[in-house]
């Protein structure tokens, strides 16, 4: 800015703020790049607009929005979800879908979290570099397997070869073809790489001096790992937990394939339960005509799903940020 006013510039055409072609080109390019960066903001706005315009406020000229026809009170308190029925039998209570979703996420958490965290402790505290070099790619592969493959795995392997021998032959309980437990287990496997790598990063960020202080006081490796390192990394582990649960809540294909299509508020792991994502998948397979209340119920469920996962992700990020502040 000051250079432009320097006396010698005007004379020899040096560093002036004059308009030149190459300078204009730079500006145009920078503006184009900015536009590309704004695509992500437009995406967020688009998601919110799409979900809200069909479910809360009518904006796109397709008749009334979902919550203008079904009251929010009914949506959140009614215990029956039957959008495909007609007339008085048609109920829109999201509770059964929420129960299904959180049962799957709960099983996934009980299965994926302990294994993920113990693996993280092993990788960060015990494992040799050679073992790490084997396990890390395996975890990446597990994370890269598509979710339809996990759905197939639950349906064809886990239910008939793991759950049926255990629960039917040993305990005499009936296992349905579609059940929450098999879906939860595969979703747990899917979240395992996330939990493991995030927790491991948190454990590795714990400074060496803390461990050495533990050893100097005569602690065993177990004491140091469990009573010093794990508590010091707890916020990173909690963040990975929240992220994993939010992934499990949003997981679609494996759950749609393995957990079944029966909305129900009964808490039973060996029976089929429809989840929020399962409902969206099933409903959109049926080519529901645009503008009907069933079609709009898709968006009401989608909006609930979006809000739940967004809140969990934001809390997870906040927890992570606090954890970063401690050791830097």
């Amino acid at each position: 800015m000051n250079a432009a006013r320097a006396p010698h510039d005007d004379a020899n055409g040096g560093l002036t703020r004059r308009f030149t072609l190459s300078r204009a080109r730079e500006q145009v390019i920078q503006f184009a790049l900015l536009l590309c960066a704004l695509v992500s903001i437009v995406t967020t706005v688009g998601i919110i607009f799409a979900l809200v315009s069909e479910s809360v406020v009518e904006m796109s000229g397709s008749g009334k929005a979902f919550f203008q026809e079904v009251s929010a009170v009914e949506f959140f308190t009614e215990t029956e979800w039957s959008p495909n029925f007609a007339g008085a039998q048609q109920h829109f209570g999201i509770l059964p879908l929420l129960v299904g979703t959180f049962m799957v996420a709960g099983v996934a958490a009980m299965f994926g979290l302990p294994i993920g965290i113990l693996s993280a402790v092993y990788l960060s505290e015990y494992a040799s570099p050679r073992v790490r070099s084997i396990i890390k790619p395996v975890l990446e592969l597990l994370a890269g397997v598509p979710s339809v493959v996990y759905g197939y795995f639950a349906l064809i392997f886990i239910t008939p070869y793991v759950l049926e021998p255990i629960f039917e032959d040993v305990f005499g309980m009936e296992v349905e073809v579609f059940n929450v437990l098999s879906a939860g287990i595969v979703v747990g496997i899917m979240t395992l790489p996330t939990v493991c790598s995030m927790s491991e990063d948190a454990l590795r960020a714990v400074p060496r001096s803390l461990r050495e202080a533990g050893y100097a006081l005569g602690s065993t490796k177990f004491d140091v790992s469990v009573k010093v390192v794990l508590p010091a990394a707890i916020s990173g582990i909690v963040a990975s937990f929240l992220l994993a649960v939010s992934r499990a809540v949003g997981e679609t294909m494996a759950v749609a394939m393995a957990a079944g299509n029966t909305p129900s508020t009964a808490v039973s792991l060996l029976k089929g339960h429809q989840t929020m994502t399962g409902f969206i998948a099933q409903m959109s397979m049926g080519e529901t005509p645009q503008g009907t209340i069933e079609y709009k119920s898709l968006y009401a469920v989608g909006l609930s799903l979006f809000v739940i996962t967004l809140v969990m992700n934001i809390v997870s990020q906040q927890v992570m940020r606090r954890f970063r502040e401690v050791y830097q």
Binding site: T43, T44, G46, A50, E54, G250, Y299, L310, N313
Partner: peptide
């Protein structure tokens, strides 16, 4: 933009499907 990208990365894929549909 940065916060926005971080949050978009956590949005379930099926929600992107609903955006795509609309």
């Amino acid at each position: 933009i940065q916060i926005n990208i971080a949050n978009l990365a956590g949005v379930p894929s099926i929600v992107f499907g609903m955006l795509g549909l609309t």
